[in-house]
C-alpha cells in the first residue's frame, strides 16, 4: 500500500500546464461516468476517462502518464459531446498527451521509425504532422 499525498507539490507545474493548454476546469466534474460509459475505446483502457479526471483532481498526474488509456483514446469526441457538465474531455486528454510529448527526450516518433512504416500511399503531410506533433 502506497501512502499517497493528494496534489503533491512537485507535480503542480505539470497539472497547471495541462489546465492551461486544455483550458478545461476539472473541478466541474461530478463523476457521473457518462464519458466512460459511452467511450468506444474503453475496452483497451486501464484507466477510464472519468478516472483520469478524478486523478487530475487529486494531483495524481504520474498515474495518468503511465497509463495506456491516453494513447488509446481515439479523439472521437463522444465524451465531450455528451458530458452533462460541458467538460471537453477529449481536449483534456489531448493536453495530457501534449504534456508528455513536449518533455525533452520523450519523443514518440523518431526519424529511424520512418522507413518501417512508410509506403507509397502515405501522404508526406502525415509524416510532417507526425513529426510536428510527436517529436521533440
Amino acid at each position: 500500500m502506497i501512502r499517497v499525498k493528494i496534489t503533491p507539490n512537485n507535480k503542480q507545474s505539470q497539472l497547471q500546464y495541462i489546465r492551461e493548454i486544455s483550458g478545461v476546469n476539472i473541478n466541474k466534474c461530478i463523476q457521473c461516468t457518462k464519458c466512460s460509459a459511452g467511450c468506444p475505446a474503453s475496452a483497451r483502457m486501464d484507466i477510464l476517462p472519468h478516472e483520469i479526471i478524478r486523478l487530475l483532481q487529486l494531483g495524481q498526474v504520474e498515474k495518468i502518464f503511465h497509463s495506456k488509456s491516453i494513447w488509446n483514446c481515439a479523439s472521437c469526441f463522444v465524451c465531450t459531446e455528451r458530458c452533462p457538465r460541458n467538460i471537453d474531455i477529449a481536449r483534456l486528454i489531448e493536453a495530457i498527451r501534449l504534456t508528455i510529448i513536449r518533455q525533452p527526450g520523450k519523443s514518440k516518433f523518431k526519424p529511424d521509425d520512418v522507413p518501417g512504416i512508410i509506403d507509397d500511399k502515405m501522404p508526406q503531410q502525415v509524416l510532417v504532422s507526425g513529426f510536428r506533433k510527436y517529436n521533440r
Binding site: Q31, T33, S36, A37, I47, L48
Partner: peptide, 9 residues
C-alpha cells in the same frame, strides 16, 4: 454503463 466505484464497464 460504468460502475464508478470499481471502474468496471
Amino acid at each position: 454503463g460504468v460502475d464508478s466505484f470499481t471502474g468496471d464497464t
